[in-house]
């Protein structure tokens, strides 16, 4: 089984639009949306039906006021500023349990929190594993790992050879969780100085975790000089530029119509994404 993840560093470069088009073009695959903070892929794939499950993770301290002798030890040891006036600020609490361990009168308990939900959906393009972290929760990395695990388990059961993951923006915990151990990362960038800056950082993350990378320059005609800079950088780094997709409002129109752009309208964008998909398939083999 092969795993492809689509990443970008910078948000809003077009990851989800490209993954939705791959969903329409690829065969024998499972889709996974590893952006659990702001999962959007399901909006384009429009699930027919889905299973919903609770995701319990992390612990939050809670102080029993009856038992508490107000000795203040919990407040002293907490490094996250989560204890005020002998009660716990659940948002600030890191769930380390230090206070629970040291409380001399056992007035503190650690309670699991409902951190979010995970879903397995069936769509006309195949199965989609996705999830939603509840507002202001931690543990997005663990939920991403679960989304991938669910996708792998079902792929194995159904004999599907490929997982295509839509990754989160950034370079931190959920990105590393979506990247570790995959076969290939497709990095979608745009020819803006911010896009280039963030591309270099995400290339660094791929290197660090030993994942081979390909680059796709989206909206390549917004600034052709910057597009050339990206190509030059990729040559220096020995990374292939798999596609250059021109700016076209058809991408937004397809999004508003909630369809993969390759199914919405034939044209240069659809053509380039088709070529990109063939290139990616070739690299995966």
């Amino acid at each position: 089984m092969k795993e492809l993840v689509v990443l970008s560093g910078k948000g809003g470069t077009g990851k989800t639009s490209i993954v939705a088009s791959f969903a329409a073009l690829a065969r024998d695959k499972i889709l996974a949306d590893c952006d659990v903070d702001a999962a959007d892929l399901y909006l384009l794939l429009r699930p027919d039906e889905e299973e919903k499950h609770e995701f319990w993770s992390g612990q939050v301290a809670s102080i029993d006021r009856e038992r508490c002798t107000q000795c203040g030890l919990c407040w002293q040891v907490c490094r996250f500023g989560a204890i005020n006036e002998y009660s716990v600020d659940a948002i600030a609490c890191e769930g380390c349990g230090f206070c629970y361990q040291v409380c001399p009168v056992e007035a503190i308990t650690m309670e699991a929190s409902l951190a979010g939900y995970w879903f397995m959906a069936s769509t006309k393009y195949g199965y989609l594993s996705h999830a939603r972290l509840r507002a202001a929760q931690e543990n997005s990395g663990k939920l991403v790992a679960l989304v991938r695990e669910n996708a792998r388990a079902l792929a194995q059961k159904e004999g599907l050879g490929l997982i295509i993951s839509d990754g989160p923006p950034g370079t931190g915990c959920p990105v590393i969780s979506s990247l570790s151990g995959v076969d290939l990362a497709l990095l979608v960038t745009e020819p803006t100085l911010s896009g280039i800056h963030d591309l270099m950082r995400i290339v660094g993350v791929c290197r660090r975790f030993g994942v081979p990378a390909l680059v796709c320059v989206n909206k390549c005609d917004i600034n052709e000089e910057n597009t050339r800079e990206i190509e030059k950088y990729c040559i220096e780094e020995e990374i292939k530029v798999a596609a250059k997709i021109p700016f076209d409002n058809v991408v937004t129109e397809a999004l508003v119509a909630r369809m993969p752009v390759v199914e919405y309208r034939d044209g240069q964008v659809a053509h380039e994404i088709n070529n990109l998909w063939r290139f990616v398939l070739g690299e995966l083999k």
Partner: peptide
């Protein structure tokens, strides 16, 4: 602020 809805966002906007 960073994108998203999880702990980095909370830390940044609180």
């Amino acid at each position: 602020v960073p994108p998203g809805t999880s702990c980095p966002v909370v830390e940044a906007i609180s």
